[in-house]
Design a protein around this nucleic acid. Structure first.
Lengths: 127, 127
DNA sequence: TGATAATAGCGAACCTGTTCGCTGCGTCAA
DNA sequence: TTGACGCAGCGAACAGGTTCGCTATTATCA
């Protein structure tokens, strides 16, 4: 029984997505600059990863532009949520609250942030 | 430049840890029963995975007992936190609050749970 | 125009994680 | 004893993910 390919973005894929989230739509060259600075990646590798990600639907690109412009297929928030849901499912078997408590208790948050959470709580309860 | 091995428990490793968290210390046979039921794993595979995990320090075992008894090296909470921290770091570059909001907003929580979060918030602020 | 550089693509090598076959050892019962 | 069985270990095969060398195509410009 073979294993199934991970549905999650892999390590390098996340790195590239992060760069794209930060820079916005960019040509390979820009993406590569960051990746190389971070871990000495070869240019060919960057191109290859992008082509793999394109095929997986993780990024999109404008081929009319010269050079091609890549952009993330999903927002950071959307991707993060998916990964979080997956983590919750795998480790806590679906109980998100356990994990929220974990996250909160290990964070130094500002008053502003805490208030934001409170507001959200009220909103959830009101509903 | 070769890639570095993941410091996170892998897919199958998490599956095994979950079984151990649920069952408590168990012999291979018990672990295997669950794993086989879940995905048709061969007994040899279960043994192998456990030996790999033993070497990585993810599980510990009592070799005096016959058969050997395996137990998780870290609690579910501790492991979950580590994985969460890692996720936060990789996707949100350290901003845990963003992720907490995500988790909360995608959860249907009971009043009791919400109150628990509030208590924690107060506690954090008081400190 | 010919040399040089930037852009893309492809296939193969390589690494980690996963799977399993085969072997060896101890125990128990015929 | 011997045969069947459960337990443990090991190496090799395999799959997915990552890396890069090599080649082709298209600008760039002396």
């Amino acid at each position: 029984m073979p294993r199934s390919p991970s549905s999650q973005p892999t390590e390098v894929e996340i790195q590239i997505l992060r760069i794209l989230w930060e820079l916005g739509p960019s040509p390979v060259r820009e993406i590569h600059k960051r990746l190389e600075a971070a871990k000495g990646t070869n240019y060919s590798t960057t191109v290859k990863m992008l082509s793999v990600m394109l095929q997986k639907g993780l990024v999109k690109r404008d081929e009319d532009a010269q050079p091609h412009i890549y952009r993330p297929a999903a927002s950071r928030a959307r991707t993060g949520k998916k990964m979080l849901d997956d983590l919750i499912e795998r480790v806590y078997e679906g109980s998100a609250m356990s994990l929220v408590l974990q996250a909160l208790s290990s964070t130094r948050a500002s008053k502003k942030e805490l208030d934001e959470v409170r507001r959200l709580l009220d909103q959830m309860e009101g509903k």
